[in-house]
Design a protein around this nucleic acid. Structure first.
Lengths: 224, 224
DNA sequence: CGTAGAAACTGACCATTAGTCATTAACTGA
DNA sequence: TCAGTTAATGACTAATGGTCAGTTTCTACG
């Protein structure tokens, strides 16, 4: 019978509508300053209704955050799907991450929520698991790429791909975070441009994880 | 006249007592879950009195955080004061940071507060400035060391010391943050030990920023 | 139709808590 | 001893996350 299906559709549509409202408010105010009353008003619903669809404020936040994670995942998957040589693909991934950072700054700022137990402790286990699963999927994409690089001789075979991933990912996100919040200060105080520093960091790490052949491949394609 | 001086002493002593109480509560509960009432009770003062000494909850938090930053600063300064060769000193600094992370986990967890405008926006400008100044001082220590390394030929002269600092600092803190909150998950899911990964990260970056001579120096002293 | 029952929705209400301020207590100096 | 200053108090306010009894809307069936 089609009615229960329609109900399901409406229900998940309503969930998305609520996320739309939450996103608007979280983007403007951040987690703490955003209020459930304002989200309810933006969604043109009563506060009580929000709680029929999401257990708590933090779950709403994670819901919005997952949209951002999905966008990032898709962008990176696109890059990998192009199937260019591994070294060039890694450079493209770094660029895609940077593009995501610029195009979706508000989502980027939410991504660190998962990192701090202090903050996400209140979210439901289920929501946290959903986020982490998506995270892991994205990481697996890159790990697979690194494995390919090891097989084709462009990535050092003595390195564990998962270790390489977490090193690249951590240093990139840490520097982007600084670019987001401290770029001016580093410019004034130390006369450096953190975007340039991010490129340097990637160059240093790429140089360290590629084989001689991998470095040659990257240099050739970068020259063009 | 000695009385006004004694009053000053008592005032700053009281400020420290309040920080002691705040520290205890923040360590146990974190910023959000800690309440001013509990801090007041722990300090055996009324809540109103807290606000005579600190403008807001966030200032108290930053006050406690600065204690941690000072400890870290002192540890790193100690290492640098030993005046070992630059490459070995950098390795020692990495180890000292890791030791700080282990010995003062609660302080470490507070350090990321400054990074997120969402969070520290409410703290007074003055308190934020104090924190950043201390931060800069610590960074200057390392930048000076890197300059020395460039002069003595152990660090690549084509790199900007401030850029090298922020790369090393960011990747180290980012990995420590993951070790703190995600070590188990990385172990289970990807079968890697993030502490080992941190060492790998440092090794890769050191290899990339040292000259041939610097790498030799490090290898020699590490062998011992 | 009409109605019983289910599902969706509401907003007044509660509990918690950051921050305030009029009042009180303690101290100082003459 | 006392006027004036400084320190401390805690009842109070406003804001806000979350709840739930009651209302409305929808569905299925006689």
């Amino acid at each position: 019978m089609g009615i229960s299906e329609r109900k399901e559709r409406e229900k998940s549509y309503r969930r998305e509508e609520i996320l739309d409202a939450a996103q608007k408010v979280f983007f403007e105010k951040g987690l703490t300053a955003a209020t459930m009353d304002e989200i309810a008003e933006t969604a043109e619903l009563s506060k009580g209704t929000l709680y029929l669809y999401y257990k708590c404020k933090e779950d709403l936040y994670l819901g919005v955050m997952m949209r951002g994670m999905q966008i990032l995942h898709d962008r990176l998957a696109d890059v990998i799907a192009k199937n260019r040589p591994v070294p060039q693909t890694l450079a493209d991934l770094a660029q895609a991450f940077f593009d995501f950072f610029n195009a979706h700054r508000n989502y980027f700022r939410m991504l660190h929520f998962l990192q701090s137990p202090q903050l996400h402790k209140q979210a439901t286990e289920e929501m946290q698991t959903n986020c982490r699963t998506l995270n892991h999927q994205t990481w697996e994409l890159v790990i697979d790429l690194l494995r390919r690089g090891i097989r084709d001789g462009s990535v050092r075979p003595d390195l564990n791909p998962a270790e390489v991933l977490v090193i690249l990912w951590s240093s990139a996100t840490a520097l982007l975070l600084r670019i987001d919040s401290e770029d001016d200060r580093w410019h004034e105080r130390f006369h450096i441009d953190l975007v340039q520093t991010l490129n340097l960091s990637n160059a240093l790490l790429f140089g360290a994880i590629f084989t001689e052949q991998g470095r040659r491949q990257l240099a050739e394609s970068s020259v063009l």
